[in-house]
Design a protein around this nucleic acid. Structure first.
Lengths: 217, 217
DNA sequence: GCCCTGGGTGATTCCCGTTTAGTGTGAGGC
DNA sequence: GCCTCACACTAAACGGGAATCACCCAGGGC
């Protein structure tokens, strides 16, 4: 066979019917993540099955296990990347020269908008979309979540140190503030059929209420 | 086998004419619910499989489909019964001769305690434990949830009518108040490995914060 | 006594995530 | 230029989920 020419052509267009050629290094890994993310965003955790992802990549389902330990690893990797963005936002905000309360408000606002923009990812990471994902599997994502929370609780500790906390400790106040925002976005996401007030209004009422309720002027 | 006596006793039972519409059927349904509830409370949605429930009842898995359309119907029925209790509490509270704000606080307090007492049921009903449960399947449970929310938003409307709402409308305020409580309990339930402040403190800070934040003295 | 009915069953279907055993291929030593 | 070997890849299968099918059988109505 005149292999030389065929090989150069093959680099542009892999043969379809035959076996899919090896992906160069971690290229295949990226392809899998891209396909999985698309399906996951469109159809959620249960809808993103191993076989569907494999078909989208053009590869057998077994091949996914060459690159990821199991299904959860694929989806958690997607979640990890998304939360890195959230963390980046928080880090950026934490360095801005603004009042601690404004910082907290903008962080929580960004958090809620992130949730509304990435509902399936948000559910996966913060609602235990599938209760079956074990703790150690979630470790990488949980650590990032902790990092986000740490960025967030920095300004809260400032506020607490300034004696401006109306109730609770810095820790419980931070947890409650976070939870209030989680509450509204998770409910709106998981129960879209209820007739909610407009998202903007809900976010604003939540922020106003909870900040004025916990933090003194 | 000395079964004769037992049989004769059983024969006395049917008092009504025609085919017995209840008796066996109704009993079996109750048995299934009891077994399912036990397993569901212990092992959650994914852990309560059709086969496990059927084994616990001592019946083939197919038999469950004689009494329930599918698995979700069984578990949603359990959820429905639980929420009826919650609704009863809310109704009772709404008739107490106390201040509207106190009413709201006690309702939300009861709500959070209910969630902590029935974590799996709470997840099933309020966290979309399995995102795959379609809207119309949830109808019965959703209606009860709406009834609870209506009981709760009664006093809120009173408060709004008295001009004591610091921000938002009666509707958005009610949704935000509910969501704040949902947020803290759902996070604590689904992420038990995080180091949370004590549940009592979280509940109190949530209630204090959100009520003072949204409602004027 | 017959027959209809309805709860009950084992086998089956389809899909899921995951595993096993085997195959084609390309890079590297000779 | 050939052989070898590691490895990306595959088909097939496994175990276990939900749900369905065709049948079975005991009892009440006639």
């Amino acid at each position: 066979m005149g292999d030389v020419r065929i090989v150069t052509v093959a680099l542009k267009k892999p043969p379809r019917s035959a076996r899919k050629p090896k992906g160069d290094g971690h290229m295949r890994r990226g392809e899998i993540l891209a396909a999985a993310e698309k399906i996951f965003i469109a159809e959620g955790y249960a809808g993103a099955t191993i076989r569907k992802i494999a078909d989208a990549v053009g590869v057998s389902s077994t091949a996914l296990y060459m690159h990821f330990r199991d299904k959860d690893q694929i989806l958690l990797e997607i979640g990890r990347e998304a939360i890195e963005q959230l963390l980046a936002i928080n880090v950026a905000l934490s360095h801005e020269p603004i009042d601690a309360v404004a910082k907290v408000r903008r962080m929580l606002d960004a958090y809620m908008r992130f949730a509304f923009d990435n509902p399936n990812t948000y559910q996966l990471v913060f609602c235990g979309s599938s209760e079956a994902i074990s703790v150690e599997k979630q470790q990488a994502v949980s650590d990032l979540g902790d990092a986000c929370f740490d960025e967030f609780s920095g300004p809260i500790r400032e506020i607490a140190a300034a004696g401006r906390l109306k109730t609770g400790t810095a820790e419980s106040a931070a947890q409650v503030l976070w939870a209030a925002c989680h509450g509204i976005v998770s409910l709106v996401i998981t129960k879209p059929s209820r007739n909610w007030a407009p998202a903007e209004e809900l976010m604003q009422v939540t922020l106003d209420g909870v900040l004025h309720g916990l933090i003194a002027e």
